[in-house]
C-alpha cells in the first residue's frame, strides 16, 4: 500500500481521471442508446473534450453555479449530476434531471448548481454574468461559470456579457471550448482573431489565458486561479480552451466535408484521457491496474444508469403544462 501522504496527494489527480472516464463512458452509452432509438431527440456528445468540464468543475463547490450549452452532458456530470439522471432525461423519463421536460439540451439540477444546458448558443454567457451579479449584490462568495463554444465567440452575447462582467467586476469564469468548428463552420472562417484570450484582454481588460483544453491539469490550474480571483472579489476571467470533438456535431449527423481524416486522426492522438492516464502512471500516482479498476467501475455505473433510464416510467401526460408559473404545479 502506498503511504498516506502519497494517497491523499494522488486522490484529487486520480479523481480527474475518474470523472473523465465517467463522462466518456456515459457519452458512448448515450450515443449507442441514440442509435438504438432510445433517445427520442438530439444528442451532442462531449467525447474528446472531457478535460475541460472536469478540470473546471474540480474547483467548484456545490453552491457555485454552471450555465452550459447544447453540448452539456459533461458539464452536468462534472457538476455532480448522476449518470442515471442524465440518461433518464435523454430518454424522456420522469426520473430525468428535468423530469422529461428538457432532454439533452435542457438539463437542470439547480440544487447542485447546474442552472441549465441550453438549446440556444449565447445565453449561457449572459446568465452566467447575471448569477455573478446576484452573488455580488447579495454578498455571497459563490462564483458562476459560463461554458460556451467557439461558435458563441462571434455572437453579440459574448461581447455584451463579457463587457458587463468586466465593468462591474463580477465573479464569473468564462470558459470557451474552442473545438475549431461550430457545426460545420470553421472558427478560422468566423473570426480574424482566433486567439480568444488575446481578444478578451484587449477588448475588456479582463484576465484571460489560453490553455491546452485536452490537458486536464492545465485546465484545472487555470480554473483554480480564475475561481480564486472571482471568489476573492477580483472580478471575472476567461479561459480559452483549445480542444476537438471526435464525434459528429450531433449523433446521427453526417460528419464529412468540413474536416479531414488526417486532422481527426491527429487529434485522436491527443486524447485527454489517455494523456492523463500516462501521466498518472509515470508520476507514480496510480498503477495501470488502478486505472483499469476505475474504468470497470465507470462501466458498471453507466450500465446501471442506462438500465435505470430504460426501466423508468415516462412522465404523466396530464402534467405536460405544469410549472409554467411559479405557483403552478
Amino acid at each position: 500500500m502506498a503511504n498516506d501522504r502519497t494517497a491523499s496527494g494522488s486522490e484529487p489527480l486520480v479523481a480527474l481521471y475518474r470523472m473523465m472516464v465517467l463522462i466518456r463512458r456515459t457519452e458512448e452509452q448515450l450515443a449507442r442508446a441514440h442509435q438504438m432509438g432510445l433517445v427520442p431527440g438530439p444528442c451532442h456528445t462531449y467525447v474528446g473534450e472531457e478535460a475541460i468540464a472536469t478540470g473546471v468543475c474540480a474547483n467548484l463547490r456545490a453552491d457555485d453555479v454552471v450555465f452550459s450549452t447544447h453540448r452539456g452532458h459533461g458539464h452536468a456530470l462534472a457538476k455532480g449530476v448522476s449518470p442515471r439522471a442524465v440518461a433518464a432525461e435523454l430518454m424522456g423519463k420522469a426520473t430525468g434531471c428535468s423530469q422529461g421536460r428538457g432532454g439533452s439540451m435542457h438539463l437542470f439540477a439547480p440544487e447542485i448548481g447546474l442552472m441549465g444546458t441550453s438549446g440556444i448558443v449565447g445565453p449561457s454567457i449572459l446568465q452566467g454574468a447575471g448569477a455573478g451579479y446576484s452573488f455580488k449584490l447579495l454578498g455571497s462568495d459563490q462564483v458562476s461559470v459560463a461554458f460556451f463554444g467557439d461558435g458563441a465567440v462571434s455572437n453579440g452575447a459574448f461581447h455584451e456579457g463579457l463587457n458587463m462582467a468586466a465593468i462591474w467586476d463580477l465573479p464569473v469564469i468564462f470558459v470557451c471550448e474552442d473545438n475549431m468548428y461550430a457545426t460545420e463552420v470553421a472558427f478560422r472562417d468566423a473570426t480574424r482573431v482566433q486567439d480568444v484570450a488575446q481578444r478578451v484582454r484587449a477588448s475588456y481588460d479582463m484576465a484571460a489565458v489560453r490553455v491546452d483544453g485536452n490537458d486536464v491539469l492545465a485546465v484545472r490550474q487555470a480554473a483554480e486561479e480564475a475561481v480564486a480571483r472571482a471568489r476573492s472579489g477580483d472580478g471575472p476571467s476567461l479561459i480559452d480552451c483549445k480542444t476537438y470533438r471526435t464525434r459528429p456535431h450531433a449523433e446521427g449527423m453526417r460528419d464529412g466535408g468540413y474536416r479531414t481524416a488526417e486532422e481527426m486522426a491527429a487529434w485522436k492522438q491527443r486524447d485527454p484521457i489517455a494523456a492523463h492516464a500516462a501521466w498518472l502512471i509515470e508520476a507514480g500516482h496510480a498503477s495501470a491496474a488502478d486505472l483499469e479498476a476505475i474504468e470497470a467501475e465507470a462501466t458498471t455505473t453507466v450500465n446501471d444508469a442506462i438500465e435505470f433510464a430504460r426501466s423508468s416510467p415516462f412522465p404523466d401526460p396530464a402534467t405536460a403544462a405544469d410549472f409554467i408559473f411559479s405557483a403552478g404545479a
Binding site: F67, M115, L126, Q127, G128, G130, E160, M164
Partner: peptide, 24 residues
C-alpha cells in the same frame, strides 16, 4: 441596486435572467 448600463438590451435582459435564477 440602481445600475446604469451600457446600451445592451439583450445583454442586460440575459444578465437579469441569470440574476433572477440565483436569488435576486
Amino acid at each position: 441596486r440602481l445600475r446604469d448600463t451600457p446600451i445592451v438590451e439583450r445583454g442586460f435582459v440575459g444578465l437579469c435572467a441569470g440574476a433572477a435564477m440565483t436569488g435576486s
